[in-house]
């Protein structure tokens, strides 16, 4: 599979495609497909990966004139893929359901005050609404439905916010460790 860092031939193929070289264009699209599959696999549910790959290839096709031949193709196609991904997220956010992480410490150490203290510290790193919901679900041990009734968010949204909040906590903590 071609990697992003080894995309010199992509530059050449798209430059050739811009003047109408069908073979170069075919090579480019065929070579890009697995890269895009890997890109979206990391970001969305596997059922929607193929749709997003096709959307991105369509965008490449219709907006290829916005590629500046003086610059590398890699950042340009990543920006197109990212745009398609964000657009997809914006359209489908309310339908996404995610499972809670079963490895979350509260299940294992739910009565451990130290763990709760650590979680409280971590909760300060994320947006207040996500922290509030995680606090209710993980520290006060309320069910998803109870939290949903109390906050007015749908159960799916509650699950999403818990999942995102936890992800944010990890990212923020990693950043802190990195900067330390």
């Amino acid at each position: 599979m071609t990697t992003y860092n080894n995309s010199n031939k992509w530059d050449e193929w798209l430059r050739a495609a811009l003047v109408g070289d069908e073979n170069a264009y075919r090579l480019l699209l065929t070579d890009l497909r697995p890269w895009l599959m890997a890109y979206f696999m990391k970001r969305v549910h596997k059922n929607t990966v193929e749709d997003l790959v096709q959307d991105t290839l369509m965008s490449l096709h219709s907006k290829r004139q916005t590629y500046n031949p003086d610059y590398p193709f890699g950042p340009w196609i990543s920006a197109v893929a990212r745009h398609r991904w964000i657009d997809h997220m914006r359209k489908n956010l309310k339908y996404i359901e995610m499972e809670l992480d079963p490895e979350f410490p509260s299940q294992e150490y739910e009565r451990d005050e130290y763990a709760k203290h650590d979680i409280k510290t971590l909760l300060e790193l994320i947006p207040s609404i996500q922290a509030k919901i995680i606090r209710m679900v993980k520290l006060q041990e309320m069910s998803i439905n109870e939290v949903s009734k109390k906050t007015g968010y749908s159960p799916s949204n509650v699950k999403i916010m818990v999942h995102r909040g936890m992800k944010n906590m990890i990212t923020s903590r990693l950043k802190e460790v990195h900067y330390d």
Partner: peptide, 19 residues
């Protein structure tokens, strides 16, 4: 042969990059 890619290739026309 990927039919989707072939469709895009079949629709290829020369385009001038935005300058």
């Amino acid at each position: 042969i990927d039919p989707f890619i072939e469709k895009l290739v079949g629709d290829l026309k020369p385009k001038k990059p935005l300058a």
